[in-house]
Amino acid sequence: MNIDSIRNGIVIDHISAGKGMKLVSLLELDRDDVSVAIIKNVHSQKMGKKDIIKIDADIPVNLDVIGYVDPDATVNVIKDGVLVEKKTIERPKILTGVIRCKNPRCITTTEQELKHVFCLRDDGYRCMYCETKAE
């Protein structure tokens, strides 16, 4: 399968197979008016299979979202067809406004405009307010 190389934009590579769509959704790329190629289950020597996302525009991308979904993914910034920057991805210690707390008893369900904040603990992400684990 061939996808044309992009001239100016971002390539999110080495995404664990199956996580590409979730990443597109959380990065809200499906809402932006930009060309996005989602390539699923690409053969990879290192990973077996992987997903790739190519964004044909130099738009800001929330690296915390990528770190949350797949900290092993890589982010390459392309300008004039040349790789100009590789961004380091880490699991964010604090995740703000990306996922929502599902605990109906949590203050986030009633408090006006309160951002949903999750903290990275030993067993994954937990709501900063009620300690409920992120699904």
């Binding site: 203050i107 900063m128 307010y129």
Partner: peptide, 10 residues
Amino acid sequence: RHPKEGAALV
């Protein structure tokens, strides 16, 4: 005191 969890932190 508040019935919602995390209200005190807010």
